[in-house]
Computed example of a mutant assay.
Amino acid sequence: MEYGKREKFVDKSEELVGTTGTEQDDESIINLALRPELLLDFVGQKEAIETLDIALRASIKREEPLEHILFSGPPGLGKTSLAHIIANEKGTRIVSTSGPAIERAGDLVGILTNLEHGDILFIDEIHRLSKVVEEFIYPAMENFQIDFLVDKGPYAKAVKFNLKPFTLIGATTRSGLLSAPLRDRFGMNVHLEFYAASDLSLIVKRSAALLNIPINEDGAFEIAKRSHGTPRIANRLLRRVRDWVQVKDIESIDRESAKAALTNHGVDEYGLGRLSRRFLETIYSSYNGGPAGITAIASSLNEEVDTIEDVIEPYLLMIGFIRRTSRGRELTDEGYKYLGKTSKVVKELF
């Protein structure tokens, strides 16, 4: 079979496991429908796509499984999509799980021993693997073997399992939490960056076409520039704008209707939602602009630290509204300007 035109043996049903409620189920189904299936369909991340393209072509010529791959970067940038694209391009099966779901070494044994030659094991949030499971996976990655201890005490014995060659694809939003031994066992380390608004605009138009939503260039760009540089957010905002224009009996999404819909949804011109604005306002009002510790800020917002570090902070850091210091988070001049406040430095001058 020719590269990029391969039969698809991908089982996507596992991605719906763990969702609760009709709304989450519907959103998961829509996300699956919008997911690109080939590298040619993937917009943005040029360097990452070129790297994967070369690796895929080489592995197909050699008729070997791909090297293990680690995808890192903020949520929603396409790590899971790329794992499924690789499976599609290779014409192989993908088994999906997550770090927190693999609680014991025995869970991993069951997964690994059921993999066929060339299969892909995708582990999302791989930085959350337990230490025991992580050490257990080392020989599986290096030698395609695992030693499993049966019984305890004087009756204990090690059982060796020979595995069929497979590719492990890990995804993480917190690469710094990965241990060095695990990180070093990945042959390819691919970091995904936030998207430019021009690339997101193409994604919005593609998704709109798949969902049969009329939209023009200006409308797509308006949604794109408010999407945190993240395709997942762009697609979610597109669906919210679609709801708004349908209720208002507007035939096509243009700039004005997109602006009105997103403003109604609580998303401002920078793409910041209510929680992001509360984060900035809390640093200003409760901590005099910072520096403030992340735990203290999370307590003030009644949010989890992980939510702030993984979801809120990356984009605010990218657009320069906050900075991380050794003493905590603090507002930048741009952050003060966004809030319409005077910076601490200017206050001290007067």
Rank of each mutant, 00 (worst) to 15 (best):
I49L: 13
E348R: 10
R239N: 08
V311H: 07
E330D: 06
L70D: 00
M188W: 05
N235G: 03
K347R: 09
I30T: 14
I215P: 12
N31S: 11
Y315I: 02
S207I: 02
T22G: 11
I120G: 01
P74S: 14
I126R: 01
F161K: 09
A48Q: 03
K347V: 08
G293A: 15
Y270R: 12
I30Q: 13
I30G: 04
E47H: 07
R324S: 08
R104D: 05
E27V: 11
K90F: 06
K225W: 00
P154N: 11
L40M: 01
G78A: 11
N288C: 00
R255I: 03
L112R: 07
S98R: 13
E67I: 03
G229H: 05
M318K: 15
G118W: 03
I94T: 09
Q145S: 14
A105H: 03
V150M: 09
Q24G: 02
K347W: 07
N114D: 13
L339E: 05
L200V: 07
L121Q: 08
I319L: 06
H228N: 15
V247I: 15
A224K: 08
V241N: 08
F71S: 08
K225A: 02
I322T: 02
I54R: 14
G4M: 03
G21T: 12
T173I: 13
S179T: 14
G328M: 04
S207V: 02
Y270T: 05
R242D: 15
E15L: 13
V159I: 15
D306F: 07
I213D: 01
L339R: 00
I69A: 03
L316Q: 01
P74Y: 04
R185L: 04
Q24K: 14
G99A: 07
